[in-house]
Design a protein around this nucleic acid. Structure first.
Lengths: 211, 211, 211, 211
DNA sequence: TATGAATGAGTATTCATTCAT
DNA sequence: TATGAATGAATACTCATTCAT
């Protein structure tokens, strides 16, 4: 007596989700060394079954990323339309990102992205996807910066450069959180401090001019 | 007639250097996946020969790190005794680090360090060495911050937190430089911008307060 | 439809036995030089599969020994409680051992034990096991000797020395059987002859005294 | 200024002897795992030089055996012509062999022979040589046995069988001495005990008959 | 004659992937 | 759909042997 197609469909989806969840855990624990066998064991399914759901290891990895990135960037659009000064909204953005760094899921997601960006063997499609998501975050940030510069709230200068530096800084914070979550939580990186990168300088810092 | 011991010595040193140089290139290109065979190929020697010079893959890696880290941290002490205000000297430090990011060698070194910190299988000794070097950089920075806070040049607040955030930021910049050196050089990250993280705020940024 | 767990269990056991049997043959033929590849070839399985059943070469070897040694020493206890004079029972023991030397399996087992005792790289556990089994054989022999000396059936003298010499002799016979089974079977070493080592001397051998 | 041919000749011979001596030591220490590099190191010569004196590892091994076997069997002939009863001379032979077992050199020699007999890769010539030397020992023994049987000093029975069993016993004693020289020396195997293998039995051992 | 650097073929071991059931 | 046994292609590492000096 065959299962109904609907039941099959449900089973497939559940299994697929389960494999991905296990992969997330295992990749976070073992890094790229993680084995298909590890994932299958974690998911409590057979080794072979994983291959009925994903063509190969790469595919699991790619799907995992596809799922994670949206989580990381969702709600971006809303920031542009929120009330408040550009600076305030930028603060929201930054502090949201920094705050998320304390959370396991977000860290695992970022860990994965790091691996993904390092791996030479990343399929072009995944790489593009990643890139596109990331770009949208940067564009949101850029737009807020431009607006903030107009109001004088944000320091003058090439917005792209500001975006680049800020994103580098956020990236570094994430790596920190990944490497030593304990310490990270102790120092609770304060979004206000990070925002200083955008802060119009007055006078006394002028003596930092390069010679 | 045998080679003179001196000639042999020269050969050994040259080959050793060559292997390390090749390893540097290959590790930077492929990360920890890099194969001894890759290194041997790059060095244009036979696979077996690599083992006459290094006990195993780990040994090559460890030696590489040992060689690279000093380069990255040398001159640290001098900064503490240089003339100039603490802020000026901090600027020197930061701008030195950021400036080095444009250079291939320094980037490869950092790539290696990243791999090293990720790798679970890092021998304790190497890990410690790394850690110690890094600590000395952070301590230098911390001392300059404390001095700068005394003179009012540097923003008030927990120096450890400031150090942590700055180092995260520098780390992020390095990763950026590694990922896309082209773009990195285009935006020439300006040490003055980064120094803003330490800049005493005035008044107008106060509206970034968290709700 | 998956195989039933029982079927899998059967397969695993069969393969395991097959690998061990092949290892037995190959080790006997080639000694410790034997290769995992040799074993896999003999067992007509892939090289990799051997590793699903045994962690490494050492493990195969150890298991083989564990299996073989009991065969060699079983029935020892019963000898102590059998009826008959101590000399008769000793004769049973010796002739049992010598008789077994004509059989392929027993010879291969002994070959293995020899290799095992030679090999420096023998895991302590296996070595101990071997040692313990062997000791129990020797102790049985010793006890029978002591009893036989009490009845005058066995020559006087240090029982330990008698045990040592007899076991050396049996070892030598085994090596002979291994080296040239053909010849061994031709000369059918007679347990009665070997028993002479225990025979109380009368008078005429006294002229063999060392000067 | 070239050396005289005679000087060269002397050097060659000295080196050759040195290599062989080192090989003896190293083989005894490490067994067949011993490396050409080990031998060269022990002989304090370069790795390459060994190959100017011996075609390959096998050749060193074979030569070593060629040298050692005569040492082990020399003086055999003289035994046949010595005064004394056959039994006495047999005793001399056996006790000479057993006595030698306490000496390092003889043990190393035997160790080597064991390896040689095990090794599949022994060249036919070496194997033959070994065999021939060994045969001459056995023949000497056989002759003495036959003589002794004529005088009634030695037990009746197939002389070849007696030889075989005795040689097996001696082989076993040697292995014992090799495995645990300490213990061996403690129990000082007594040639008189071993000679019992040849002792004409009286009456009481008759109950050892196989059923 | 002497040296030791260099080579290359061989061996153990791991893991993604396939396949019979 | 589900299982896990089986495969084979890496990859690290060793060592006898050759060769330039």
């Amino acid at each position: 007596m065959p299962r109904t197609p609907e039941a099959n469909q449900r089973i497939r989806e559940a299994q697929r989700a389960r494999i991905l969840e296990s992969a997330r855990i295992v990749f976070a624990r073992k890094g790229m060394e993680a084995t298909i066998a590890d994932i299958a064991t974690e998911a409590q399914i057979s080794l072979g079954l994983a291959y009925r759901y994903f063509a190969d290891k790469e595919a699991i990895f790619a799907e995992l990323i596809k799922q994670m990135v949206p989580e990381a960037s969702e709600g971006l659009q809303s920031l542009l339309e929120m009330p408040g000064t550009p600076g305030e909204r930028l603060y929201e953005l930054i502090s949201g990102i920094v705050g998320a760094r304390g959370k396991r899921q977000a860290l695992e997601a970022h860990q994965l992205l790091n691996h993904a960006l390092d791996a030479d063997a990343m399929p072009e499609k995944t790489r593009e996807l990643l890139s596109r998501r990331y770009q949208s975050l940067l564009e949101t940030m850029r737009q807020l910066i431009v607006e903030g510069q107009a109001t004088g709230e944000i320091v003058r200068g090439d917005p792209d450069q500001l975006v680049a530096i800020m994103s580098a800084c956020l990236d570094g914070l994430t790596r920190w959180a990944l490497r030593d979550p304990e310490q990270f939580r102790t120092y609770v990186p304060d979004a206000r401090i990070i925002m200083r990168l955008f802060q119009p300088s007055r006078t006394e810092m002028s003596n930092f001019e390069a010679p």
